[in-house]
């Protein structure tokens, strides 16, 4: 989702307020980064620089943390976040082919966002509903017992 300038300003105001409140906590970096990720959906260089300057650490340190943990994203997320489970059960039941079909259908690789900003594709770990394997989740909606032929129809609902 791309933010309007107004939303961006509001987000930065909220982030600055959060930093002000927490910058003297012990080990404040992670929680401030998590807040920024919640607000913006990802951590841009601009956002990371703001956090670094506020905490008086090099931006390379913020970037180091952002790239160490999978929970942080460096790229904007699409309007819809689509996860294909590649946990053991789903994998055995053919989720690799489902993921491949998603990538082909959206012309976008896993881990990236489509050019139109509609979808972000992720290959996820186990989503906890192995009985439905193989599973795909779009936003909060779960789709189970999939075969590659199901993919296009499901995606159409979101396009």
């Amino acid at each position: 989702m791309s933010l309007t300038n107004e939303q961006k300003e509001q987000n930065y105001a909220a982030l600055n307020a959060f930093i002000e409140e927490h910058k003297n906590d012990r080990g404040p970096l992670m929680k401030i980064m998590q807040k920024a990720q919640d607000l913006f959906g990802y951590l841009s260089l601009e956002t990371q620089t703001l956090i670094a300057d506020a905490l008086h650490v090099p931006v390379t340190e913020v970037y180091g943390v952002a790239t160490f943990y999978a929970q942080f994203s460096l790229q904007p997320k699409g309007e819809h976040v689509l996860g294909v489970c590649t946990g053991t059960a789903c994998y055995v039941k053919g989720s690799a082919a489902v993921l491949e079909e998603v990538e082909r259908e959206l012309n976008c690789k896993s881990g990236h966002t489509t050019e139109d900003g509609k979808f972000t594709i992720q290959a996820t770990r186990c989503l906890g509903c192995c009985g439905l394997a193989p599973v795909m989740v779009i936003d909060e909606q779960v789709y189970g017992r999939l075969v590659p032929a199901d993919v296009a129809g499901i995606l159409d609902k979101y396009r």
Binding site: A52, V57, P58, V59, T60, E61, G64, T67, F68
Partner: peptide, 15 residues
């Protein structure tokens, strides 16, 4: 770069 010169141009990324 970071501790002596206080530049912070380089750091450690990924895992």
């Amino acid at each position: 770069c970071n501790d002596i010169q206080k530049i912070g141009a380089i750091g450690v990324a990924n895992r």
